[in-house]
Write a protein that binds this DNA or RNA. Structure first.
Lengths: 236, 236
DNA sequence: CCAAGCTCTTGACATTTATCAAGTCTGAAA
DNA sequence: TTTCAGACTTGATAAATGTCAAGAGCTTGG
């Protein structure tokens, strides 16, 4: 770990919506105290219940967020570059509600919360950006909650596939970005059930081959999944 | 509906954490454009998918938030005075993700979003308060999501009862604040199942009589429910 | 190369949850 | 008061989901 970020990494962070509109001087202030670290896969970055003094920004790789209770564990989300994670806990100076672990080799910037708060007061654009980011996070969880409460596991899987397809710009064939075990947990079911759910989507034109998904009858799947912007469109 | 709030209503809003630390002048600016309305019970205030230009503040009564998809509906939350609701949509100027309906006769203040954004830029205390409020909302949904994904319906009910008891300052006997039909939907189950779940908690010392709940063996129920601060403590 | 360990799948079965169909109870309106 | 509508409960049954056990396939490290 080393103190102060190399100039070459600034652009990655600067392009994050959170930082893109702020004053150059304030951005520099933030970066001066920032640590940059490279982590291998499967490293625990944050443990549920702990306190932290850093805002995390993932620059490359992937980080998984999970939560646990009474010996059970569930996958809450996957964070990919370039974005922040666990902003709310950092801001409230409250214990983390989720654990974070690298899923792949990842580069992560750690910005001291104190600096974040200081600059927040000095820079209205930054303040507005934090509010926008938090609002976005909030709305994402609400959507996810609606997905969980209003849909069966088969429907959740169908809509997940359509969302992934959309993210890949709509090809007939695309790859799953996480292992099925994790996907199952993310969708709120067991791995066994996920296997069966994939089979359950065969009649709607879904073919599975390892991590490769092929949607042979788009219309049929959409008709079954009934994707809905207020649940599945993460851009609004 | 009338424009501009009577002076007598300001204190209610002023004591909201969101407004308590802001400059008097800025607060006045907000209040000048604010509408105040009294609604009877069962009035639709907001419909999922619509846009709105007002931040809502509930001053008395109760408002229910719900979401729907494909003919199904679920209860997401209950909002009680004094607090704001659907702050995120207002800030992002995005469509509401949930519908809002008065559960009882309610008094609600509507603050124009434009004014909120304007004052946000001028008043750092207000900006910080909005961020804190949003972070709080976000964390609440995360907790709720953990509750849903990590617990069975029986465990969710048990912990819900313990939370309600705590809110009532820990009496052995207390009243349910919502009808069981709504509670079932909130907890993610059917009314039939809720009935059975109450019976399922009898062995742990839970007695139900209409809306009256009696926890005769606190220790036993806690031992079963295993309440956990990172799920059940809404103050952190 | 082989062996170990892991994911993934499948089948059998158990459990949980939902659905359907009565029926009871309660509160409000006629 | 009577009646009605709705909430709530209960039982029977169906559907969804989880658990357990076994085996196939893949990756990895020796």
């Amino acid at each position: 770990m080393h103190m102060g970020m190399p100039e070459s990494d600034h652009p990655d962070i600067r392009e994050l919506h959170l930082f893109s509109d702020m004053e150059h001087e304030n951005f520099s202030t933030l970066m001066r105290g920032t640590y940059l670290q490279n982590f291998p896969a499967q490293v625990d970055l944050i443990t549920e219940g702990e306190q932290s003094d850093f805002l995390h920004v993932i620059l490359s790789g992937a980080v998984g967020l999970s939560a646990s209770w009474n010996g059970r564990e569930t996958t809450m989300a996957t964070v990919r570059p370039v974005s922040t994670f666990i902003l709310a806990a950092t801001i409230k100076d409250a214990p983390y509600l989720m654990s974070a672990k690298t899923l792949e080799k990842s580069r992560i910037a750690l910005i001291p919360s104190l600096d974040v708060r200081k600059v927040f007061d000095a820079d209205n654009n930054f303040a507005r950006a934090i509010v926008a980011e938090l609002a976005q996070c909030y709305r994402s969880v609400i959507k996810s909650q609606k997905d969980l409460k209003l849909r069966t596991s088969l429907e959740r899987l169908a809509n997940y596939l359509l969302r992934q397809q959309h993210l890949a710009n709509g090809p007939q064939e695309f790859e799953l970005k996480m292992e099925k075990k994790r996907l199952a947990s993310f969708l709120g079911m067991t791995p066994e059930n996920l296997s069966r759910a994939f089979k359950g989507l065969q009649p709607y034109g879904v073919e599975v081959n390892g991590n490769l998904i092929r949607i042979s009858d788009q219309e049929d799947l959409v008709k079954f999944a009934k994707p809905f912007s207020l649940i599945d469109d993460y851009s609004i």
